[in-house]
Design a protein around this nucleic acid. Sequence first.
DNA 1: ACCTGAACACCGTTCAAGT
DNA 2: ACCTGAACACCGTTCAAGT
Lengths: 187, 187
Amino acid sequence: MRADAKKNYSHILMVAHEVVAERGANASMRDIARRATVGLATVLRHFPSREALFEALLCERLDALTQTAEELETSRAPDDALVVWVGEWVGFAQGHRGVVAMMAGAHANPDSALYASCAALHSATARLLRRAQSEGKARADMDGDNMFALMTALGWAVDQPSFAPQAEHLVHLITSAIVTKRPCNNS
Amino acid sequence: MRADAKKNYSHILMVAHEVVAERGANASMRDIARRATVGLATVLRHFPSREALFEALLCERLDALTQTAEELETSRAPDDALVVWVGEWVGFAQGHRGVVAMMAGAHANPDSALYASCAALHSATARLLRRAQSEGKARADMDGDNMFALMTALGWAVDQPSFAPQAEHLVHLITSAIVTKRPCNNS
DNA sequence: ACCTGAACACCGTTCAAGT
DNA sequence: ACCTGAACACCGTTCAAGT
């Protein structure tokens, strides 16, 4: 990449960070171009889709998140790890308006620039659940897909203005539904 | 309303029904106008916002849904009523792509044309929960707001292509987390 | 190589002009 | 009273023309 291109790239990314913080994940590409005093076409070639932009924008954060999951596998008891993990995820969702909905979409099609990150989160989640289940600390009648779906739904919910105030309690309701401190069959 | 206006109104509504069935809740108003062979401005005066259109489009269905909740209060045991109710809601969500997300937004601001319907669903839900709680059939550490949030999140989830296949099981996971057949403290 | 302005096909909003 | 075409300000996509 040429020097001026590289400079543009990182400048656009910086500006995008600001704009997204203000307007959320539906901010227009044109707005970002304008604020970066750069042609819209320039933004679009560096980031051919909105998801490509967000992939670049969030990759460090998403990698860190996935790594957190891996660390939780060894640093915490299976049940605690699961609870903390859901908390981390919800924290991420709260800090990035509209991103969870975007990721839910990206999770569906492998062509999305965000697909790999979604898959990584998915499998990290599945491992934490499996670990807890193997010690009888999570309900046995669900799998990683279900866990990921519930977490994503929860992330979406706390992102809605009408539900945001309940965020903390919703996390508790979901986690306590998944984690079983003592064997107890409520089915 | 003049005769020709009334005719336009119902014709637009009929066409909108088709278009929404095909393209989901994000179908463009222009598309609807085109298919109805009517000026876009005509659509916009009959239905000043997308939500106004959906209010007209869904009001019978939403009323029926709310009424179902009321009937469940008397026709079913408190725990069964709650489970059936969530099933009804999810069925609605599955049949109307993108509508749950729209309603989550409408629920937040009283100016929305869909606000009243959301409020009705909300309170019907809260009543069913309260009834179950009073007989010890639903977990006590949640309120109607939480229940509505969880149901909406669930409705959103089953509306996502990536999660749709799990719909039935997700319903089971959520309902079994809320309904307590026997007293059992997992907190 | 990289950038850009312009043209394009869309969207919802608004309103003066028609019947 | 009701409808409509047109103008407007947006959006993302594409590409020929510039450096």
